[in-house]
Design a protein around this nucleic acid. Structure first.
Length: 495
RNA sequence: GGUCUCGUGGCCGAGUGGCUAGGCAGUGGUCUGCAAAACCAUCCACAGCGGUUCGAAUCCGCUCGAGACCUCCA
């Protein structure tokens, strides 16, 4: 059941059965962030999505090698191939070294991703530590005639490449059409390039440039796309299973990665290309330049003009997982609030799994639930469907506790295992607040609460409802909720 | 201008030809001294027009609307 993963491959524009190069070890590369600012909700969606994919692959296959770069060599801020890169710009703004900018935001990135329970990649390579490898790759491209030097910079020759390969195969573009478009848009600033479509492999650095390295072509810095080609191949091989990234990077970034890799090796680069969609806010893309971005830490604290409250990291994660990774996700306070409530309900049910007692026979079909959960994840990692089935499981848990339903001993074992596996391991959710009293940790609290509930019960027996309500209200003020039921009152922490 | 994607009930969001998505909100009920919680039941839908089909939210065409990429962005 779990060996039939289908995934949507951007390269072929259809769902395909996933066939690993080596089932004993899957290779996956995902484009990571350029660390010149804090992670925002869009980053969260992207990396939670790939975390889901990574977790599921790791669940199904014995080993997944997950590589995600941390870009610490800034790309240029505009298309004119001139001026500052993003990191240098930020370093001038903050009046610190570019590498200090990188350190700061890299740590912030991991801090936010840790909060979202995003597992760290096995390798987080940084391009500044792979300058020799990048230079080597560029030299090979020059030797093979796919790149040319011009005034201390090196460019990739798209025209030449497209004669033997298909430039545009990932994003469905045609070189001729793009040439026409480029001509219309009068991109005439790049006089060093032979055609507007050519892209930089190495850029000459002027005196004021802060991040630069020596190279056969003089002092400079690597181009926009070469780092991902080089670092993915270094750690995963020339041909590897999965390359992921944001949809907006399909062109030109990923297209250029493919061109560089396949020009150099004459082998297929990544077999499967996965692209996640973006977060919209009021139907519009959340983006840096639009000023409508919400940082992860703002979500967690509620400190953003677009937020009516704070949302916990797990609420954000759950919100993201409730939509498919290839769909856009529309942000709103209402939607996040709904996710918060839903997660709370699901969490409460799952916390009570261990309180279920087995019965003589099973009145619900656990094997079917298991099949449905796997089927959902096998179908292009459809977490919304998986979550829908977990809500079904939550309903069962409540009914089992009420003894409206029963499970045999072996079915109960399977049920617990499958629900825990999907909630904690595959969806990567955690219980953020402990609503149940833990006897081992809180025996005194439990005893006290038993006492309080006893007093309240006797107050109710004597029809002293004022007293009973006062106890309830005072406890509520302490974030303790009384739950009256058929067999007396229970309590739990609110949150 | 070119390439592409999308339009599902009050909100979010699955679903690609026939079978309940799910969550949140709403309504009715069980329970309760009252509430809360929990559970059960339930209302509200597939942008519009046409076509294919025994049958379409699902395929095709057109119209309207929204968005993305083509320039940094997950």
């Amino acid at each position: 059941m779990s060996d039939k993963i289908t995934l949507y491959n951007t390269l072929t524009r259809q769902k395909e059965t996933f066939k690993p190069i080596n089932p004993k070890s899957i290779g996956m590369y995902v484009c990571g962030p350029t660390v010149y600012g804090d992670a925002h909700l869009g980053h969260a969606k992207s990396y939670v999505s790939f975390d889901l994919i990574y977790r599921y692959l790791a669940h199904v296959y014995p080993k997944v090698k997950y590589v995600q770069n941390i870009t610490d060599v800034g790309h240029l801020t505009d298309d004119a191939d001139e001026g500052d890169d993003k990191i240098s710009k930020q370093s001038r703004l903050e009046k610190v070294d570019p590498m200090a900018v990188v350190e700061k935001y890299m740590y912030n990135y991991f801090r936010d991703m840790d909060a979202l329970n995003v597992l760290r990649p096995n390798i987080s390579p940084r391009p500044s530590g792979h300058i020799p490898e990048q230079i080597e790759a560029i030299q090979t491209l020059i030797e093979k005639g796919y790149a040319y030097e011009a005034n201390g910079s090196v460019y990739f020759d798209v025209t030449k490449y497209n004669k033997e390969h298909d430039y545009g195969k990932l994003s469905g573009r045609k070189v001729e059409e793009m040439m026409d478009g480029a001509a219309n848009r009068t991109l005439n600033a790049q006089s060093e390039k032979r055609t507007p479509l050519d892209f930089a492999l190495w850029k000459k650095a002027d005196e004021s440039h802060l991040m630069k390295w020596n190279s056969p072509w003089g002092s400079g810095y690597p181009g926009w796309h070469i780092e991902c080609t080089v670092m993915s191949q270094k750690y995963l091989g020339e041909n590897f299973d999965i390359h992921g990234g944001g949809l907006e990077n399909a062109f030109p970034h990923h297209e250029c990665e493919i061109a560089q890799a396949e020009a150099n090796t004459d082998k297929q680069f990544a077999n499967y290309w996965l692209h996640n969609n973006m977060v919209t806010i009021n139907g519009q893309k959340m983006g840096k330049s639009l000023g409508n971005g919400i940082f992860c830490n703002e979500l967690f604290t509620g400190d953003n003009y677009q937020l009516t409250q704070a949302y916990s990291p797990m609420t954000v994660r759950f919100f993201i997982l409730q939509s498919h990774y290839r769909s856009t996700l529309d942000f709103s306070n209402e939607a996040l609030g709904a996710a918060e409530k839903g997660l709370k309900r699901l969490s409460k049910a799952i916390q009570q799994l261990d309180s279920i007692k087995s019965g003589d026979k099973s009145t619900v079909n656990v094997a079917d639930l298991k099949d449905k959960l796997y089927a959902a994840m096998n179908d292009d990692f459809n977490s919304p469907i998986a979550i829908a089935h977990l809500f079904e499981a939550a309903k069962w848990i409540n009914n089992l506790l009420d003894e409206q339903e029963t499970l045999s001993d072996s079915d109960l074992t399977t049920f617990k295992s499958i629900v825990n596996t999907f909630f904690f391991d595959i969806l990567g959710l955690t219980i953020e607040f402990d609503t149940t009293a833990n006897s081992a940790d809180n025996s005194a609290v439990n005893a006290l609460m038993d006492l309080v509930l006893e007093f309240r019960a006797s107050a109710k027996e004597n029809k002293n409802y004022a007293m009973a309500d006062q106890i309830r209200d005072r406890l509520k003020a302490l974030n303790i909720q009384i739950k009256d039921g058929k067999e007396g009152a229970k309590w739990e922490y609110e949150n």
